[in-house]
């Protein structure tokens, strides 16, 4: 299972609200391979965030399946009849949010060590050593004992990224990680993400940063009205968009 290069297989995923009156996801099928940097673009309300949040079941899909590392996490019970422990699978999927969602009552270090210690049972000293090392790597080694409120937006988002990395996930999900940042702070966060991609981390990124999609992504997906309308390599997708709605979208954002 671990050797399969299909990390996540999504089949016919649907998310309806109000008994189907609103179709946030209307049959999405896609595979995420190990090492992929998949960038999802599309107008707001296209379902791209809902799709991303479905991958770790923050949104519970109405229908369809998500097979993550060989296990269909949308089923309440596995093949062996045991109850599915979604927490176990979420540990393997790091997530970064638009609004950072750092824990304000804990220091940066505590933010990062909480889950490794409480969930994985890592000894505190080791968790802290690892956290400091990660902080060092994103240039925040000296802020370990600060509280989130003392950090700038860009710093908060870098902490949020390494907080997720501290759990040693197999895939990182990014939900518009730079949308809430002041323009001058976008670069520092994208740099961290670029380095992560270079190290071979599997990433699924919902973003409006077309430069990032083009430069870092190996696959770009265009979504609208809950469907994947086009998928291609970034070079192809941006140079020769096929779908008229993608052409329209690109003419507005580029």
């Amino acid at each position: 299972m671990a050797t399969s290069d299909k990390l996540i297989q999504v089949r016919d995923l649907k998310k309806y609200y109000n008994n189907g009156a609103i179709k946030a996801l209307d049959g999405v099928s896609v595979d995420v391979n190990r090492g992929d940097v998949m960038v999802i673009i599309g107008p707001s309300g296209s379902g791209k965030s809902t799709f991303l949040r479905s991958l770790n079941l923050l949104e519970v899909p109405t229908a369809g399946s998500i097979v993550f590392e060989g296990v269909d996490i949308t089923k309440k019970r596995g093949h062996d009849g045991k109850k599915l422990d979604i927490d176990k699978h979420r540990q393997k999927m790091g997530m970064v949010f638009q609004h950072f969602n750092l824990f304000p009552h804990k220091t940066i270090l505590q933010n990062m060590t909480l889950a490794p210690i409480k969930v994985k049972g890592v000894p505190q000293a080791e968790a802290e050593r690892k956290a400091r090392e990660l902080l060092e790597r994103v240039g925040l080694g000296d802020r370990a004992d600060a509280y989130p409120i003392q950090l700038s937006g860009g710093q908060k988002q870098r902490v949020a990224i390494v907080r997720a990395l501290a759990m040693e996930p197999d895939v990182m999900l990014f939900d518009e990680p730079t949308s809430a940042l002041d323009p001058e702070m976008v670069g520092e966060v994208l740099d961290v993400m670029k380095r992560l991609a270079k190290q071979g981390m599997t990433m699924v990124v919902v973003t409006h940063e077309m430069g990032f999609a083009r430069e870092v992504g190996n696959r770009v997906i265009f979504m609208d009205e809950g469907k994947i309308l086009e998928e291609n390599s970034p070079a192809e997708l941006f140079a020769h968009p096929q779908n008229p709605r993608l052409q329209d979208f690109l003419s507005k954002v580029l």
Binding site: D87, Q91, M93, H99, N101, F103, V119, R163
Partner: peptide
Amino acid sequence: IGQTEAARSLGLSQRL
């Protein structure tokens, strides 16, 4: 609600 989402996405149980 983002606090809950962040915690759950890290694998914390509902109780934790």
